[in-house]
Amino acid sequence: MLSIVIIFLLISVYLYCLLGGADFGAGIIELFTGKTKKERVKDLVTNAMAPIWEANHMWVIITVVILFMAFPGIYTQVSISLYIPLIILLIGVVLRGTAFTFRHYDAVHDHSQVIYSRIFAVSSLLVSFFFGLIIGALVSGKITVNPTSYFEGYLHPWINLFSISTGIFICSLFAFIASVFLVSESTDQDTRELLVKQAKLNTAIMVLSGAMVFIFSFIEGVDFAQRFFRHPASIAAIILATIALPFLWRILNKGLIWTSRIIAGAQLFFILAAFYFIYFPEVILLKEGSNISLYNAAAPDSTLKVLGWALIIGSFIIFPTLFYLFKVFKIDRSSP
């Protein structure tokens, strides 16, 4: 049962990065769009996201529920050591969701729209950054169970160059996914070109910040790079993600909507797979040298059995309805 629970955990993380990530990325793109085109991008983002964003963000809740039920040791240690970035993340989540909805539903369209947009866009960036930062912090080997000072216990695990570079990497990754996803939602040539440009720009940032992750891991004494080169599978995954890029460009230019989306999804998959090969089953690397893993923090069998079945049964309910939702609002529309 443990493996079934882990599979669901991985699926939820992947789907959250893909669907939630596309949502966050949409906000980031809006943030970095020039004044003249802002209005158009905003409408595009709103129309693309509105029917599905609530559902997209459910994956994080499923992830959290799996964590606290099946891996309480991970959940509580993260809650303690990464307390501050988590709070900032939550503030971002609260502001972002409400600003998005308020912007869409406000009965009067006046100056307040600008404020909602600002909050929505800035908090999208904030949430993505801290999401990435938290992931980096987990494996930075700076989390400790017995802190001797406030700095060591609650600040150092996340205030370091390595975590910051993973934060930037995730921002560009999300923006990249969003731009590929949004291209097909837009109907006018101008916006399409803008988004393709964004996708390329974000690829460049992604490559740069990806390199930074490696460099800073050396500087910060994080064993990320060493581990990476020890795992052929993760090297292969990253190579696959990179060679997919040129294909993606061709296809984007040709306007093959679903193929480009699937390729972007596959690239995300490869990147996460690389992470998986490097670390699985470890989740938190401790300063003490030991780790908290999906194996050593797992809840007793009776709990896992119940959760596993709940997830299996739940997925029979969720996946068909979710598919129906996407069919109504995404598939039926994009096929003319």
């Binding site: 559902a55 459910m58 809740i61 499923i62 529920v65 959940y75 809840a299 119940v306 709940a310 129906y324």
Partner: peptide, 20 residues
């Protein structure tokens, strides 16, 4: 978590249906 997570996991499904 391990003891009372079950209703939360069902709740997750219910939320999902609700959000969809």
């Amino acid at each position: 978590g391990p003891i009372i997570g079950m209703p939360f996991s069902w709740e997750g499904t219910a939320f999902f249906v609700e959000a969809i």
